[in-house]
Design a protein around this nucleic acid. Structure first.
Length: 668
DNA sequence: TACATACCTTTCTAGACAGCATGTC
DNA sequence: CTAGAAAGGTATGTA
């Protein structure tokens, strides 16, 4: 099947041809046959008689880089009415926004927390790219544009499985379906074990495929050799080196680019440093490998200089130093500019190696010839866990640059005797099934309030009916959300956010909490803290920062033992401006110290401390500072609204606003 | 005195969504 | 109240 055969206006056919798309990949053909194209478009070009369905909802569980974006574009360009493209990350929203803007004559909008646009404006676009939370928020606040949508594409729909964000995604999808009954939904998923269940839920056709534009060879490294699935081996002598470094050197010596996944920022940094010190890349280029082999080209000195020019901390200058040799590290402690610099330079084949934490597997597309997964464990709140098969496969999927590599290689590093275990667990094994995480207190509390506050339900029966159309209910029709829903209602009544006068309704407070999009627990914490703060003689920026840092929507910073004493001392010295007192403390003191540490960092930040000093003193990366500040700014905005609502007398509202503005003004 | 060794203690551990108003290329 | 690796610290042993 060729682009010219598709029922598309000629300008789009030309556009796709310019992009190098001539004939469709097999998974794309399957998606077309499953019905992503709209009936209107099909009729107008006298197709439709060949048994191809049209205007169907489709779930495509196909590999990364097998052309999902094009499938989405086909669905959106032939949709009756505007389309919505839902992504999990703001960086992905930006990437897709730019991609769709290339489409001739198509008006594209973007709706995320950091790009604003009014409802009316969004309604004028043909395509709106948005994060799932932004869509949820728009629905809660009754944005009109949402109801006009003809097609919604949900990227990375397997994230329904995510504990923290999956529930919002499924509630949002269920709400979209309810608001616009004829909605065409296109779910784009990684390969998972139960894509059929997701498709059933959406009443969609399922498309699955293993096909990739570049072959992928996966294997395990042990005892000086990679053993690929199928039994082929490749000797990679370690020569006394760490296995990971041998694998990197081997890939680079062949002219390939290499991506290494590790499980901590420190490990990513240290590995990049070691590889830079060794000069892996210059060794390789001196052996005569060139761009002709799909290898690196261009001078990394320019990237290094670009990074250095905006580097303000040790992390930034170290990154620039290593980049000079063609090696970089990548994790969320980096400023987003530096992250983009590294990603772009790698895509342009200027950098040869990136040592990264799992951020890179979830983010924008950065393919490499060889992917090395060094660490297959991860730290969580309750200990060390093996990485899910799905996540390791996502990392694997970054191997193989279309048009450059004959094949991609993905290698797990075994550490001794576990090679057989690793092979069994990850190589050729099926990824996990996606399971709904809606049935937990945090999710229900939030979505019960949102559903009542936006007028979608005014009784527990209504609520149960709304939740009855979620993925959770579809997966387990016999499951009963009654108990946990009642718990949530009871909590919200107790907190004064919902009133039960025969019918359930949101109080003004409840509506506000839902609208500013904070966890009801955060809303309650903030109110309690505002109340305590009225007892204080004076309030300062530290007061309000402590207030927002000590909520569930803000995570504390790690406090080491040696720090705890000084921090406690600091708390006592500042008792006059803190809403919680050390002397008669009630609750988890350790957790509070963590909040206080974050508050203190932010207070130093708005008082003009430079990033390098803070990074040093608090043991955080420059990216963390920016992200924490952004989050605090958002929470202070919510706090300000709440303070106005309860007409707090302490004059604290003014301090909240000043602190929020100070955070917004502070630049790196 | 200098150093090796065993054992115990401490530290450290991925990521990133939302609101709103204002200024900037 | 959960896990595990690595770094740091201390007591003891040995030349």
């Amino acid at each position: 099947m060729h682009v010219g055969d598709l029922p598309l206006p000629p300008e789009f056919v030309d556009h796709f041809r310019e992009e190098g798309i001539e004939s469709l990949y097999p998974p794309q053909v399957a998606a077309v046959e499953a019905g992503v194209l709209a009936s209107g478009a099909s009729d107008s070009s006298s197709e439709g008689s060949d048994g191809i369905a049209t205007d169907e909802s489709v779930v495509a569980a196909i590999p990364t880089a097998s052309g999902k974006t094009f499938v989405a574009e086909l669905a959106m360009l032939t949709s009756e009415g505007p389309s919505l493209f839902i992504v999990p990350l703001r960086a992905l929203a930006t990437e897709k926004y730019e991609t769709f803007q290339e489409l001739p004559g198509v008006s594209v909008g973007i709706a995320t927390g950091d790009f604003d646009a009014s409802d009316e404006e969004l309604g004028d676009h043909d395509i709106v790219v948005a994060t799932s939370e932004k869509v949820d928020s728009a629905i809660r606040n009754g944005a009109g544009w949402v109801e006009d949508i003809g097609c919604a594409v949900v990227d990375e729909i397997h994230l329904l499985d995510s504990r923290s964000r999956g529930p919002t995604l499924e509630v949002t999808i269920a709400n979209l379906q309810r608001l616009t009954p004829d909605l065409q939904i296109v779910g784009l998923s990684a390969t998972v074990d139960n894509a059929d269940e997701v498709a059933d839920w959406l009443d969609a056709e399922l498309v699955t495929a293993e096909w990739r534009p570049v072959d992928l060879r996966t294997g395990v490294y042990a005892d000086g050799a990679i053993t690929f699935e199928g039994g082929d081996t490749r000797a990679v002598p370690a020569d006394g080196d760490a296995p990971t470094e041998a694998l990197v050197r081997d890939a680079v010596a062949e002219g390939g680019q290499c991506l290494v996944f590790v499980n901590s920022r420190g490990a990513a940094h240290d590995l990049a440093r070691d590889l830079a010190d060794e000069g892996v890349v210059s060794d390789a280029t001196s052996e005569g490998e060139t761009a002709a082999n799909g290898g690196v080209r261009g001078d990394p000195a320019a990237v290094a200089e670009e990074i250095r020019s905006t580097a303000t901390t040790g992390t930034g200058t170290a990154l620039a130093e290593y980049a000079e040799t063609g090696v970089a590290f990548h994790h969320a402690g980096l400023r987003s500019e530096h992250r983009s610099n590294v990603e772009a330079a790698f895509r342009d084949r200027v950098l040869s190696v990136i040592c990264a934490t799992p951020t890179l597997a979830a983010g924008v597309n950065v393919p490499a010839r060889r992917v090395v997964v060094r660490d297959h464990h991860r730290y969580t709140d309750d200990g060390v866990e093996s990485l899910p098969v799905l996540e390791v496969h996502q990392m694997f999927g970054r191997a193989g640059r279309p048009g450059l590599d004959p094949y991609g290689e993905a290698v797990l590093v075994g550490d001794g005797d576990d090679a057989a275990d690793l092979r069994e667990r990850y190589i050729g094994a099926d990824p996990e099934a996606v399971t709904s995480k809606l049935a937990n207190d945090d999710a229900l509390r939030t979505h019960v309030l949102a559903t009542v506050a936006s007028g979608f339900a005014d009784s527990r029966e209504d609520l149960l009916e709304v939740f009855g159309s979620t993925f959770y209910a579809h997966q387990d029709p016999d499951a009963d959300l009654t108990g946990i829903t009642d718990d949530a209602i009871a909590y919200l009544e107790e907190a004064g956010m919902i009133a039960d006068g025969g019918d359930l309704s949101a109080t003004e407070l409840g509506e506000l909490v839902s609208q500013v999009y904070v966890d009801p627990l955060t809303g309650a914490d903030v109110l309690a803290a505002l109340d305590r703060a009225t007892e204080l003689d004076r309030v300062e920026s530290l007061t309000v920062l402590e207030l927002v840092c000590d909520t569930p929507d803000m995570r504390g910073s790690y406090v080491r033992n040696s720090e705890a004493g000084r921090l406690t001392q600091f708390a006592m010295n500042n008792e006059a401006v803190l809403a919680k007192s050390v002397s008669d403390f009630d609750g988890d003191f350790q957790a509070w110290l963590e909040s206080l540490k974050t508050a203190r960092l932010l207070d130093d930040w708005i008082h003009g401390e430079d990033a390098a000093a803070l990074a040093e003193r608090y043991g955080v990366g420059p990216g963390d500072i920016r992200r924490t500040a952004e989050r605090a700014e958002w929470l202070l905005n919510a706090t300000e609204s709440l303070a106005e609502q309860v007409e707090n007398e302490g004059g604290i509202t003014e301090t909240i606003r000043e602190t929020r503005e100070a955070l917004g003004r502070r630049q790196p």
